[in-house]
Computed example of a mutant assay.
Amino acid sequence: MGPNLDTCGELLRPLRALMGLKQVALQKGQFNVDGAPYAAAGLLTELVHRGECRASELAHYRIVDASVVSRQLGQLEQAGLITRRPDPADRRVSLLRATPEGERTVARQERRKAKWLSDALADWDDESVRDLARLLGAAMTDIRRHYEDQTATSDSAIKEGTR
């Protein structure tokens, strides 16, 4: 059955506040990444965690247009943080991988963010932080799945209408 609308409305408030805090941190340079714009750094982090993959996979996972990913990948490549190689299965497509410097950059940034969170959540214990991480992870998995299901249904309806 799922939660009612009022309960989900209660969830929206802290999510909006969290997103607003992220924007403030970005504006103040709190989460700047050495050698890469913030948005491109998010893509670099995704690539480090996912491993070698195609740009289309990154765009799909980040839920952004391929043109956005293409521009950001160009910035990361120019900064020496990623490399490209032809995909052996389809040489028209490139496989992307973080360079060792890209991996070090992400590790430094993840450490800074973890330190920032540790300071901000100084009154929390490890178990509470783990519970929050587990719940947020589960919620994001379900939200992503729902989004992808809706997108697939919508895409299917559009294709059916063009026949």
Rank of each mutant, 00 (worst) to 15 (best):
Q109H: 14
S94P: 00
E101V: 05
R112V: 05
D119T: 08
L132Y: 11
W116Y: 13
E127N: 00
K115Y: 12
L136C: 06
L95F: 08
D125N: 14
D131W: 04
W124Y: 06
A138Y: 10
R112N: 12
A138Q: 08
R108C: 05
R112W: 06
A133Q: 13
E101Y: 03
R134C: 09
A133L: 07
K115S: 14
T99F: 08
E103I: 03
L117M: 14
G102Q: 04
A120D: 02
A98N: 05
K115D: 15
Q109M: 10
W116Q: 08
R104H: 13
A114Y: 04
E110R: 09
V106F: 10
R97K: 14
A107L: 13
D126R: 00
E110K: 12
E110H: 00
R130L: 15
G137M: 05
R130E: 15
S94C: 11
R134S: 11
D123F: 12
E103N: 10
S94T: 05
V129G: 01
K113H: 09
R134K: 10
A133W: 14
L121P: 01
L136K: 03
R97V: 05
R104L: 14
E110A: 15
K113E: 04
A114H: 01
A120V: 01
R134Y: 13
S128N: 09
R97G: 01
L135N: 07
